[in-house]
Simulated assay, not measured.
Amino acid sequence: MRQKVDNTELTEFIKEQKDEHTIKAICDALNFPRSTYYETINRVESNRDKENRELLDQITQIHKNSKKRYGAPKIYTVLKNKGYKVKYLDFKSAEIALFRFIESWYNKTRIHGSLEFLTPQHVEDLAKQSA
């Protein structure tokens, strides 16, 4: 049984493998409908998704430029000064959003080819067991 991954991750995996195998064979092996694969690759990004992606890019850049020192309150202030309409009303909601951003960036459940197609969480667990 495969771990729960989203359609975008599976689609990316299929794109990487389609030179070696047919899309039908990959989709069948993953128990992933071909119609979902084609719907995912042809999807047009919504305005909200574009805005969220741009905001996420800004947050990432601000965090990187601060040598990863800025936390949610400072990032919120910098975004506000740049003219972004940020929807965080208090420190706690900004902190939660920043935590979600970090957790989404460091995806522990996505399989990685460089980890022999294991998840980062599985590799961490194996390292703890052998230590």
Score class of each variant (00 low, 15 high):
residue 35 S to Y: 03
residue 58 Q to E: 13
residue 26 I to P: 00
residue 70 Y to L: 08
residue 82 K to H: 13
residue 43 R to L: 03
residue 84 Y to Q: 07
residue 63 H to P: 05
residue 61 Q to T: 12
residue 36 T to C: 08
residue 80 K to Q: 11
residue 56 L to W: 10
residue 41 I to S: 03
residue 26 I to Q: 01
residue 82 K to F: 10
residue 96 I to S: 11
residue 65 N to M: 01
residue 63 H to N: 09
residue 68 K to S: 12
residue 91 F to I: 15
residue 94 A to M: 05
residue 95 E to F: 11
residue 71 G to L: 08
residue 71 G to I: 06
residue 65 N to P: 00
residue 23 I to C: 02
residue 66 S to M: 08
residue 73 P to D: 03
residue 94 A to L: 07
residue 39 E to G: 09
residue 67 K to P: 00
residue 24 K to W: 01
residue 29 A to S: 13
residue 88 Y to M: 11
residue 34 R to N: 04
residue 31 N to P: 00
residue 38 Y to V: 05
residue 70 Y to H: 08
residue 39 E to F: 09
residue 66 S to Q: 01
residue 39 E to C: 07
residue 55 L to R: 13
residue 91 F to V: 15
residue 82 K to E: 15
residue 49 D to A: 15
residue 71 G to K: 05
residue 65 N to F: 02
residue 23 I to F: 00
residue 24 K to Y: 09
residue 49 D to H: 10
residue 44 V to G: 05
residue 66 S to P: 00
residue 96 I to M: 10
residue 43 R to C: 01
residue 39 E to L: 11
residue 25 A to C: 07
residue 73 P to C: 07
residue 77 T to D: 12
residue 88 Y to D: 01
residue 77 T to F: 00
residue 70 Y to T: 05
residue 73 P to K: 00
residue 62 I to G: 01
residue 95 E to M: 13
residue 79 L to H: 07
residue 85 K to I: 14
residue 48 R to S: 13
residue 70 Y to K: 05
residue 37 Y to F: 15
residue 65 N to R: 04
residue 80 K to P: 01
residue 76 Y to F: 12
residue 87 K to W: 05
residue 84 Y to A: 10
residue 36 T to I: 08
residue 65 N to W: 07
residue 93 S to K: 11
residue 74 K to E: 06
residue 76 Y to P: 03
residue 88 Y to L: 08
residue 40 T to Y: 07
residue 54 E to C: 06
residue 88 Y to R: 02
residue 31 N to D: 12
residue 94 A to Y: 01
residue 44 V to E: 15
residue 40 T to W: 01
residue 45 E to P: 00
residue 39 E to M: 09
residue 34 R to K: 14
residue 24 K to F: 06
residue 69 R to I: 14
residue 48 R to L: 13
residue 37 Y to H: 04
residue 75 I to G: 04
residue 31 N to M: 04
residue 56 L to C: 13
residue 86 V to Y: 05
residue 56 L to I: 10
residue 25 A to S: 13
residue 62 I to W: 06
residue 95 E to S: 14
residue 82 K to Q: 15
residue 89 L to V: 14
residue 78 V to L: 03
residue 91 F to P: 04
residue 51 E to N: 14
residue 50 K to I: 10
residue 52 N to R: 14
residue 65 N to Q: 11
residue 32 F to K: 06
residue 62 I to R: 01
residue 23 I to M: 01
residue 79 L to N: 06
residue 93 S to T: 14
residue 42 N to H: 15
